[in-house]
């Protein structure tokens, strides 16, 4: 059984004169118990997709279901069984931590006690502040409270819209640890993120750009589809090196990646010596060039370029 099924969903915004296509013909399925990532920058269509699946927004065309309930005809059943954490903090700022959690439990006809085991590991971290108003919490604590409130009715599918945006590297790691624990409880989790490195934490991911899914697979398979030989290159002057490599006649693509630039040569050429010779002529010092394993961001950029070529 699919936890989520999306078929040919289209969503446009704006008037007749000026329309923006947020989602153009999206189809995919998510298995029960899967931790599924939707990876893409702002404007990819991630939020529109989540709002359609949580029955808060109507698609122009196409069908979608959550736990086999139709988003249109059976929206009430869906609302009862999904948890949704929007990208923008949406709890009641004037209510305390405890009041917010009680409120969300009560509107789902349950109590904190009934499902405490599910939120316990997360809630104990904010429990010392349970009498503080939600609006007065720090960013990290707000995020934990929002996750508790989305979980308190024991949803079968959890939608998390950019939970780690603007969050530092340490808190991001902690958040993904929490998701892994929740997955063990059998909850299906759909999570969106603009951070490409987080793809590795998911069972499967969809790479989204400009309303389209460019690729959908396990992170490992997406990386193995990167079909070119990748080089990592560095020298003393990294910005000049980037410009020189981009101007090199045999360069197909060159992108900076931390302390190295990632280089792909035309026709998948593996001739390292020719590149080194060219860089020496350009008077680069301490040149280092080695084969490199592509990562999800390499794949994302390759897919982006391929899509541009077609249009």
């Amino acid at each position: 059984m699919n936890a989520v099924a999306v078929n040919n969903i289209v969503k446009t915004y704006g008037s007749k004169k000026e329309t923006v296509k947020a989602l153009s013909d999206i189809s995919f399925t998510v298995n029960k118990g899967e931790l599924f990532g939707i990876i893409g920058p702002d404007g990819a269509g991630k939020t529109s997709l989540f709002r359609i699946l949580t029955t808060l927004l109507l698609a122009d065309s196409g069908t979608a279901s959550v736990d086999e309930f139709d988003v249109l005809k059976e929206y009430k059943q869906i609302r009862n069984r999904v948890g949704y954490m929007p990208g923008k903090f949406s709890l009641y700022q004037d209510m305390t931590v405890e009041e917010n959690l009680e409120f969300f439990a009560s509107i789902f006809n349950t109590s904190i006690e009934a499902n405490y085991d599910l939120v316990k590991d997360i809630y104990v971290q904010i429990e010392p502040f349970k009498n503080r108003r939600a609006g007065k919490l720090s960013g990290g604590m707000k995020q934990k409270l929002a996750l508790c409130c989305a979980l308190i009715h024991k949803p079968s599918v959890l939608f998390l819209d950019e939970p780690t945006t603007g969050v530092d590297a340490v808190s991001r790691k902690e958040f993904w640890e929490m998701l892994k624990e929740l997955k063990k409880q059998g909850i299906t989790i759909l999570v969106s993120t603009p951070y490409m490195d987080e793809a590795a934490m998911c069972d499967r991911v969809a790479l989204m750009q400009a309303g389209k899914i460019m690729s959908i697979d396990t992170p490992g398979n997406i990386i193995s589809k990167f079909n070119k030989h990748l080089w990592a290159v560095r020298s003393e002057e990294m910005y000049r090196l980037l410009k020189d490599l981009k101007n090199y006649s045999n360069t197909e693509s060159c992108n900076s990646f931390g302390e190295y630039h990632h280089l792909v040569l035309k026709n998948d050429d593996r001739d390292k010596e020719a590149v080194l010779k060219y860089l020496q002529v350009q008077k680069h010092m301490n040149i280092e060039m080695k084969p490199e394993q592509p990562n999800i961001e390499d794949c994302f950029m390759q897919l982006m370029n391929n899509n541009y070529d077609r249009s």
Binding site: P41, G166, M196, Y239, L242, N255, E297, F300, M301, N305
Partner: peptide, 24 residues
């Protein structure tokens, strides 16, 4: 202050090129 949050990977790099040029 966090100038590149949420920006796609290609644009993120183009943005850094602008930073390098300004520094030069």
């Amino acid at each position: 202050d966090e100038p590149t949050g949420g920006v796609d990977p290609v644009t993120r790099r183009e943005f850094w090129n602008l930073i390098y040029e300004a520094a030069e």
